[in-house]
Amino acid sequence: MLARIAHDLYWLGRHIARAEHTARMLDGLFQVELEGGADDPRSVSLSWESVVVVMGAGSLAQPTGRSLRDDVVERLTSDRSNAVSIVSSVGAAREGARRLRDTIPAEAWEALNTFNLELQQRLRDGDVGTGSQSIYSYVKESSALYWGLAAATMQRDDAHSFLFAGGRIEAAAMVLRMLRVALPPVRPTDDEGSEIPRRDGNALALLRAVGGFQAFMRSAAAPPRAEPVARFLLFERAFPDSVAASTDFLHRMLSRADSEPGGSTAALRLARLIADLELRRRSELGPDELPTAFREIQHELEQVEREIHSRYFGGDLDIPQRATA
């Protein structure tokens, strides 16, 4: 298929997955913010600053007279001038889909178009302004509807592969970003007693945000503490939003779309990452090693992203200079 079409499909998938995970993260933080106190067994240190770091969404400078929360929520939800806000991601997905109307099923296009319009309408009606998070449930549901329609009605061809490849790589990248921020390295100055419960609290909040709490409770023979949760979100192949499940799926999509997967550095590199994840799953991971593992996996995934761009779309991935420098 045309590289441009493949590229647009891939990014359509990425934008929808990005909007969904941003919504999950903000929703999760609203829940965290409602609770918590100094004397709780498990306090949570995730904050509005953390979200900004996850998204890499520019500086923390805040306009006077507004709370950081209101500022961050607006910037990541309804601010069109911010390329990573939910409204921008959904808008970009819809613009992409408009150019792909002959490729994606009509029902999926209609669902996405309605999603975009209804989201704007709800934001105009001030659903976020009054502090209710129902907008985030709506984003989660609408993206599930889109993926469901695409899965049910789309021919399993290259177009399908690139659309879902985009969705999965974005999901893996977002989960890794959230893990890195929720479970930062233990600082040498920290006293163990306060640091461990905090990491456990963060891990639980993250697990709930990605909708994996029940899956974790049913599958893991361990309480939801930092280390088992991190392992679950990295390695558990049976949980669809884990990094391992996402990269597996991504590899299947690329192998199917590529006429010669054995000669594709993108597919090879990805296969190496998958093997690396499996090897790490089989070894112990101390609390100190977790942040290192996140960083290394994230770095490798970024290399895979670059390879995908150069192999299939023939261009460089646009990662803003400021942050990579």
Partner: peptide, 21 residues
Amino acid sequence: HDFDPPTMPDLPQVGWTEQGQ
């Protein structure tokens, strides 16, 4: 809580360009 975040690259943006073609 003191917040000591890891440095993180910005999210990549869609980049189809003439040069890419």
